[in-house]
Amino acid sequence: MIKKLFSLAIVLFVSGQSAQALDLTFADHNLTDCVRDIISKKQWQALDQITSIECHSKKITSLAGIEQLVKLQKLSLYNNNLTQVELGNLPDLRHLNLAKNQITQIRLAQLPALAELYLFGNRLEHFRVQQLPALKLLKINDNRILTFTYQDLPALQKIYMFNNLMEHVDIYHLPAMTYMDARQNPMPDPLYEEMDKITGVTFLHDGNAEDWQ
């Protein structure tokens, strides 16, 4: 009997530790509330159980502290109020959706597993992305992007960048690319001609810099 009570006490003590550890707090109270609701519904008991967070239309303004979720694989914060984003140190993150926010600046680092990145419908003017070795899909359409620069994107296959303000894009250093939608950008005809020369890639473009206006 004593042995059973002792074992039960250990279980309760460990459970109490887990519950306390999952009482997460972030800089943004709306993000805190949303994550806590998800934890409650999923009945997660440990940090490594939190693999997917979906908080749409919650008026979230900051991601500070999200790195606590060390096993996060999917983060979807569609239609919130983010303006500046710094995100990193999430080694298992594969899917990131920050579309339909108000982002003007974004910095991504140490996301080695990231395969899908959705940033459409923001307010980006200059977008630089680098060292995302697993990235396959990028959607940056419907921004205000003037310059798009990249480095070390060996797996990137599909890029959606239509409806921006780009006059140039480097189409020569994306070895895995099979699709690029560059319509509704004020690019010159010579660039479109260069696109058409590349085999194995589907390019969508306007064919004339005036057509998109």
Rank of each mutant, 00 (worst) to 15 (best):
Y78D: 06
Q73R: 13
I53M: 04
E86W: 09
Q73T: 14
L77Y: 02
K71N: 15
Q68E: 10
G65T: 05
Q68P: 04
T51Q: 10
H56G: 08
A64K: 15
L87N: 05
T83I: 11
L87R: 01
G65P: 01
I53Q: 04
T51S: 10
I60C: 05
I50L: 06
N79A: 11
N81F: 13
K59H: 13
N89H: 08
L82E: 07
C55P: 04
I60K: 00
L87W: 03
S57F: 12
L72N: 02
L87T: 03
G88I: 05
T51N: 08
Q84H: 15
H56P: 08
A64E: 15
N79W: 13
L69M: 07
L75S: 00
K58M: 12
L63R: 01
Q68Y: 05
T83W: 08
S52E: 11
L77E: 04
S52M: 12
Q68S: 07
N79L: 12
I60F: 03
I53E: 00
K58F: 10
L63I: 09
L69I: 05
K71D: 10
N89I: 01
K58A: 12
G65R: 00
N81D: 15
L77R: 06
K74G: 09
Y78Q: 07
L63V: 07
H56R: 13
C55L: 09
Q68L: 07
E67D: 12
I53P: 02
I66M: 05
N81Q: 14
L87A: 06
N79I: 10
L63N: 01
V85K: 00
K58N: 14
T83D: 11
I53S: 00
Q73S: 13
